[in-house]
Nucleic acid binder design. Structure first.
Lengths: 212, 212, 212, 212
DNA sequence: AATGAATGAGTATTCATTCAT
DNA sequence: GATGAATGAATACTCATTCAT
């Protein structure tokens, strides 16, 4: 209880390092981020970083676990317990993901993986196992539940998941790459796009048409 | 008539270099591709590459011009001359882009830009001006034409363009990144996804509902 | 007190690197000296050099500050405090410069600047501000003092400074260039030349002729 | 007599190449001058240069022969034939050298040699044999003639040659190096310096003092 | 004779990782 | 535990020279 500040500091170190790493990896990419910068942003020296994480790759894996694995587990739990309309659940899950992950810096992790998967096969494997597969299982399952319950038309689940995920991921990627440069490209109003997507796709998905 | 082999080579070199550069840039990214590798893949020495392109960045710009700018111009022409249903035109443009660009290696260029825009601001600017803006102008214009002609519901054009582009771009990115690693992630059946997308989104877009 | 060897090295490194740099820059010139050679001569690796100096140019500037700026400041102080004959002071300043700078490796810096000024404008600017101007101000001031005190004839100060500096600088350059090659060119006996110069020029400078 | 322009061109080539080489070598130094630039300035292609001179070093030797050896031979002849006062002859030779060589681009050759002798020992040897030695023999001989004739005091000839040459050479070097950068260093008024030098040194050299 | 396409050795600088203190 | 000095592998770009045309 009366842990000295030094003690608190020592316990907080991993979190501080992960936060610094997330920020810089998203900003510059994995390969282009220097470990020394991560350490500096976390307020420690280069050597200290290696005390907590044995390499840059392991540091990145820890960032993924910290920021994505946990969120996914929550969503899976939520879906398992939900009782009512699958439509509502699907909307909720997607909105929540956007709020908690997509909008924030953690969204940038997907950019990094897209960018550097082929140069770092170990990271790619880890990310697919830890993130991509679970999300596909979750959303695919929801589509199947909706079809089974008669809410949705009998669409192919796997492909529909792609169509659901696509625009959201694309916006995330854009905002963390070209959108982050101060250029005169198209400005993306993410909530508006999500609204349009929900409108368009639900109309297409639902067994019973909505009105205008 | 009496073009010596040396002469023929000189004229073919730029194409050979651009093809090699496209392959490697897409595979490894811009920063991680070594110029010497590009030269080797094109069957020439390091120095020769610099005879044709003054720097790695200029080489990359040339790759973009060669592979994307030309295709975009074709699509713009096609759209300007098309007379019939906007729905057909939109489907055609998107299918053609997928066939000619998305599916092939040129699709990987968008991955590179997502990945490295923030580290190479000059390239980002070039890509936005040369590729992103023209595509948005083209598709946005089609949506507006469809609304004006009464084919489409009065959706917001800019955001709808995002929803149209999103899944396609996401698939492209996926196939050039995680999909290219031999992992057990979800296998994407791109034509099937496109079919689902067209089905879902057109249902949402059209003023008059389709049947099942 | 308990300075570990590592610590002692850290403090000594800049000096060791500057000494190695001076030696090699004088021997081969600025452009032709490889940073790795400098590091090797100082007994460290390539990377260590860059821990202390951010670039080859900054290393060179540090060599100038270390070897010339300090000497010039000393001479300026001496001149400011000197009370007696300007003739004596002038002789002393020139002899001292020859002993402390001209004769030693630091003399070679002027060779480098002559050689590479036009290819490295930043270095040229630095050298003019830091070395050439101060020396001219010092010697020009001495000539003026001598004229004002009636010791010297009313010669034009600026041009006289050139005549004073010329032979010394020429000898320095010669010894660090052609003289350093084992050739059968004229061997320069620097002290003898200086003696002749002092004899000839003082005779020309003094208001009252000397005897034979 | 009716040589076609093409013929005239072919015969003029070596001269044009030497002129171009002199200009660029003086401006940038030997190592830093690219052979392609020399060829371009002479209006021919890279390959053509090698048709006339087998290497960059041989090109440089030819520049020396063309611009210095010839002038020296003229001065030697003049000195051999001169009958009157050695003082006049010495003044004349030095002024003529300044006018014909020092002031013009050929003066820059000495800068190059100072700069790069140690990196190109072959060139150094050639320059000493072809230029330095002859000039020293010429001027040393004049001093001895002046002493023998009673015009000059019995000064040591070799060292006196250094004092004579020094300021002139220094000015040449300065004007081709730091002086050629647009900096705020001291501006050298070469004729004024020469006048001062002649005044000072002759006063010191002559057996019978001049008046004020 | 003239060209210019091709070559490949050579070099400043960066950065993940180690380890003595 | 914490530091930061030291390392050395890795890479874009240049330029003298050659030689097929």
């Amino acid at each position: 209880m009366s842990t000295a500040p030094r003690q608190r500091r020592k316990e907080a170190r991993p979190q501080e390092l992960l936060a610094a790493a997330l920020t810089l990896f998203v900003e510059k990419g994995f390969a282009a981020t220097r470990t020394e910068e991560v350490a500096a942003l976390a307020g420690v020296s280069k050597g200290t970083l290696y005390l907590y994480y044995p390499s840059k790759e392991e540091l990145f894996k820890a960032v993924i676990r910290e920021n994505l694995s946990a969120r996914i587990a929550e969503a899976v739990d939520l879906a398992a317990q939900h009782q009512g309309s699958v439509t509502d659940l699907l909307c909720h899950v997607m909105q929540a993901w956007w709020q908690q992950v997509g909008m924030g810096p953690a969204g940038g992790i997907s950019k990094i993986m897209m960018a550097e998967a082929r140069n770092f096969p170990d990271l790619a494997r880890f990310y697919v196992d830890e993130v991509v597969q679970p999300i596909h299982r979750l959303l695919g399952g929801l589509i199947e539940r909706g079809i089974a319950s008669g809410e949705f038309r009998p669409v192919p689940p796997t492909e529909t998941v792609q169509v659901l995920i696509g625009p959201m991921l694309h916006m995330i990627l854009y905002q963390h790459s070209l959108g982050a440069c101060r250029l005169h490209g198209p400005t993306i109003d993410a909530p508006a796009v999500l609204a349009v997507q929900v409108d368009l796709i639900l109309r297409g998905l639902l067994a019973k048409p909505l009105g205008h």
